[in-house]
Simulated scan of single mutants.
Amino acid sequence: MTHTYNPVEIVAADLESKPLAPPSAEPLSGEIITRSRVEFANDERTIISGTWESDPGTSRWEFLTRGEIIHLLEGAMTVQRDGEDAVALTPGSVAYFPIGWTGVWTVAEPVRKFYVVYR
């Protein structure tokens, strides 16, 4: 089944709101509210895609059992893989977090991203 949509057209009311928490990530700067909606998942849930938003804050991410590809639609953030320099992401940026990636995300401005998670 094919489903096409424009992630920019999704409004916050369409997204599920909840605090960021393990196993997704560990907030480092207090509570961080996120909003998300899954648009696609295959039957085995080895591929999942959708839209995700986050309020500003700093969090630790460990992609130990899954990888992720993101396309930042709005906002500004930096990602810093352990032992490496931080990389700034702005609207239009694409980033790849392979299985095994660990590091810190710092959301400076509220972000909206389209994501694909794979296992």
Rank of each mutant, 00 (worst) to 15 (best):
W52F: 09
N42F: 11
T58Q: 13
T65P: 15
P27D: 04
D14E: 12
P22R: 05
G50I: 13
I47L: 07
S29V: 13
T46S: 12
F63L: 03
F63V: 01
R35L: 10
E39M: 04
T51A: 07
T58D: 08
F63M: 04
I32V: 15
G30C: 10
T65V: 12
S24W: 14
S59R: 09
A21C: 10
R35W: 11
W61D: 04
K18R: 08
F40W: 04
A41P: 09
I33K: 12
G30P: 10
P27S: 03
T65H: 13
N42D: 13
E26T: 14
W61E: 07
S17M: 08
P19R: 09
P22N: 05
S54N: 04
L15P: 04
I48F: 07
G57P: 02
P56K: 03
D55G: 06
I47H: 11
V38L: 00
I47W: 08
F63N: 01
F63T: 01
T34A: 14
L15G: 06
T46P: 04
G57A: 06
I32Y: 06
R35N: 15
E31P: 11
I47G: 02
S54V: 00
E39D: 06
P56M: 08
L64P: 01
S36G: 08
G57V: 06
R37G: 14
T58M: 11
S17A: 15
S59M: 12
R35H: 15
I47Q: 05
A41K: 11
E16R: 10
N42Y: 14
F63Y: 10
F63D: 00
E44W: 12
S59Y: 09
L28Q: 02
D14N: 15
E53N: 02
R35Q: 11
A21G: 14
A41R: 07
A21L: 14
N42S: 14
G50A: 13
P27G: 04
S54P: 00
T65F: 15
P23F: 12
T34R: 10
N42A: 15
E39Q: 04
R60M: 13
E26A: 08
S49E: 00
S54M: 02
E26D: 14
G30M: 11
D55E: 15
W52H: 05
K18V: 09
W52K: 05
V38M: 01
T34W: 09
E62S: 12
E16N: 13
P22K: 10
D43L: 10
P19K: 09
T34D: 15
A25Y: 03
S49N: 03
T51W: 03
E53T: 06
E31K: 14
D43R: 08
I33H: 07
L15S: 05
F40C: 01
S24P: 04
L64G: 03
S49K: 00
L64N: 05
T58H: 08
R37W: 06
G30S: 10
P27A: 02
E53I: 08
S49T: 03
R37V: 12
K18I: 07
S17P: 06
L28S: 02
